[in-house]
């Protein structure tokens, strides 16, 4: 009895120290994520900083109604969803493919160095990368010089409404697929190698094994990531778009975030900005919860 109790106490003690380590993080979460939620009140007010949250007049759903009458709202939502979906779908597929291929590399040194190289762009900010992208893709850039030597006509990628979205999606996928593949690599290593060996003995080719063992084994993680990503479907990457767009490509490049930035912060319409932000979060949450439901229904796996 005594021994058991002592064990219990010791375990609780060791757990408590972990909890204590979590405490600063929890406090940060509280201060920076939960307390600011009270600011959502602003979405239903005509907020003026001088009057404060308590003193500003209540306007109900006015900002939401105004949003629906905006002439560009359809365009903005369409651009945002197209760009975000493109990034999510292509980004996920690329990351999974890369993880599977990298897993086959047997040379450790090669594997590690390739991994490090593809992670690198993730740690550069778009402010820096944007100038790199511009230098590559403007009319005098290296891409156009290549096209020129091939005898093709020069293309103004950054000013073309047909090519701007692919450019955004492509450069974002390039920047992030390496980093995103970490999770998938981890998921692959968690698959029992016995399954592969058994399949190999039964004569399954590499392709068959990937299709019937690796991918199903990764499925829970893929679903989890997809559902999490879906919640950000209305965030198409402010810093990337902001640093690359111009009025010429507003038609395909202007997204909710850049629009709210121009309206909310530069023209100082705080309440309107908050209202759009709130709507974005609500839609994101609905999508996440429903994708969780769908995942449960079709694959019998649930995320939370």
């Amino acid at each position: 009895m005594k021994k058991k109790n002592a064990l219990k106490i010791r375990r609780r003690h060791s757990e408590l120290s972990y909890h204590a380590m979590m405490l600063p993080g929890m406090i940060f979460l509280l201060i920076f994520s939960y307390i600011p939620m009270f600011g959502l009140w602003m979405a239903f007010q005509e907020y003026a900083p001088a009057k404060g949250i308590l003193g500003s007049p209540w306007v109900g759903l006015m900002h939401f109604k105004y949003m629906s009458t905006l002439p560009d709202i359809g365009l903005l939502v369409r651009n945002t969803v197209v760009i975000a979906l493109g990034k999510i779908v292509i980004g996920t597929v690329m990351a999974i493919l890369f993880a599977i291929l990298l897993n086959e590399v047997k040379n450790k040194l090669l594997k590690k160095s390739v991994q490090t190289i593809v992670y690198l762009p993730h740690f550069l900010s778009w402010v820096v990368l944007a100038s790199v992208v511009v230098n590559f893709f403007n009319l005098d850039g290296s891409v156009n010089q290549m096209l020129g030597t091939l005898g093709m006509e020069k293309i103004n990628f950054l000013g073309s409404n047909q090519l701007f979205q692919p450019l955004l999606i492509g450069t974002d996928v390039w920047k992030e697929f390496g980093y995103n593949s970490i999770v998938y690599l981890a998921a692959i290593t968690a698959i029992d190698p016995g399954l592969h060996e058994a399949a190999a003995i039964d004569g399954a080719s590499w392709r068959k094994r990937v299709w019937h063992i690796t991918l199903p084994g990764m499925m829970p993680i893929i679903l989890l990531m997809a559902a999490m990503n879906l919640s950000s479907i209305l965030s198409a990457g402010f810093d990337q778009v902001y640093n690359l767009y111009s009025p010429m490509v507003y038609e395909t490049g202007d997204i909710l975030d850049t629009y709210v930035y121009r309206m909310g912060l530069i023209s100082r319409q705080y309440s309107f900005g908050t209202a759009v932000g709130l709507l974005k979060s609500v839609i994101g949450m609905v999508l996440m919860v429903s994708s969780n439901g769908l995942a449960k229904k079709f694959t019998d796996r649930k995320i939370f």
Binding site: L16, S17, P24
Partner: peptide, 15 residues
Amino acid sequence: NKNLWKKSIVLGMTL
């Protein structure tokens, strides 16, 4: 162990 977690709690609270 006891000392350790006491210390961590104190540290956390101070923070």
